[in-house]
Write a protein that binds this DNA or RNA. Structure first.
Length: 271
DNA sequence: AATCGTTCCTGATAGC
DNA sequence: TGCTATCAGGAACGAT
């Protein structure tokens, strides 16, 4: 599932390849994923030139020279692929944005949860972005983090994944960071000690940086903009390692369900 | 304001 | 073998 490091990897690659290209057409076999509608989006973006590609949280933004913006969320199984006209149709290809120079930007998405949304201007965009909590790698200091943790008695893992509290962290990076910090994912967020909060914040930055360095985690569906796998899955410490030996003690990794999500940890060394 | 349950969707897997 | 039921999950939404 694309989280901050995966979306950032896509952003960096795309920025090099699509800036300056013009949008020629948009088509879809899954109209619900184009908001508010294919017709409206088409009218707004056809003829516009791509100016900038940004990311905030897990949301990608393509800025156009007419002031409008395409916001893209990949949710669970979305892929944003840059292909050449005539390339083989991608598995689960749902939306195709035709660009100049025979390029196609494709949204491929098995579960159809992902979407592309037209945002009219920067004002509307900043309203959307203001709902997100701080960016963990650049905008989250210890006092802010401690304040966030204090605000809830829900399990710490749920808080890490709550986009309105901290943005960009999903299931994989949440469980990996909690393992590194030696914190039990079930602990109420407001019960973490000062030293644990500090360790957790450092761990979050560490796993996200590693995720970016390895160009994301291709657990099941994630591919980068050129259709290549990431490598971070080769370095998972706990994610999907049920029954395997913990890397830090003789214990074994277990899986529980927390907020309806698979949660992996070592009950022996995560306290 | 915080929290909880439900919904969206398709493919993999389990059970008979 | 072939059918059906269950599960997986980010986040928007409504209800409490």
């Amino acid at each position: 599932m694309p989280e901050l490091p995966e979306v950032e990897t896509i952003r960096k690659d795309l920025a090099k390849l699509i800036i300056g290209k013009k949008i020629l057409d948009v088509e879809t076999s899954s109209p619900k994923q184009v908001k508010p509608s294919l017709e409206v989006v088409k009218k707004a973006v056809v003829g516009a030139k791509i100016k900038k590609v940004s990311r905030r949280a897990k949301l990608l933004q393509i800025f156009l020279d007419n002031g409008q913006i395409l916001a893209i969320h990949l949710k669970l199984t979305g892929r944003l692929l840059l292909r050449k006209k005539g390339d083989l149709f991608d598995n689960w290809q749902r939306v195709t944005i035709h660009l100049t120079e025979n390029l196609e930007l494709r949204l491929a998405d098995l579960r159809k949860f992902g979407w592309i949304k037209l945002v009219k201007d920067e004002k509307e965009l900043s309203k959307i972005l203001s709902e997100f909590g701080p960016e963990p790698m650049t905008d989250l200091d210890l006092p802010t983090f401690k304040k966030i943790l204090k605000s809830s008695r829900r399990p710490i893992k749920i808080i890490l994944m709550d986009q309105s509290k901290i943005s960009g962290i999903g299931n994989i990076y949440a469980v990996e960071a909690l393992f590194l910090a030696k914190v039990d994912p079930r602990r109420p967020a407001n019960k973490l000690k000062e030293t644990e909060s500090k360790r957790l914040l450092v761990s979050i930055e560490k796993v996200l940086k590693a995720g970016i360095r390895y160009r994301g985690a291709s657990d099941q569906y994630y591919l980068d903009a050129l259709g290549r796998k990431g490598n971070y899955q080769k370095h998972f410490l706990v994610y999907k390692r049920i029954g395997e030996k913990c890397f830090d003690c003789p214990g074994k990794i277990i899986r529980i369900s927390l907020g309806g999500r698979g949660t992996f940890f070592c009950p022996h060394c995560q306290k």
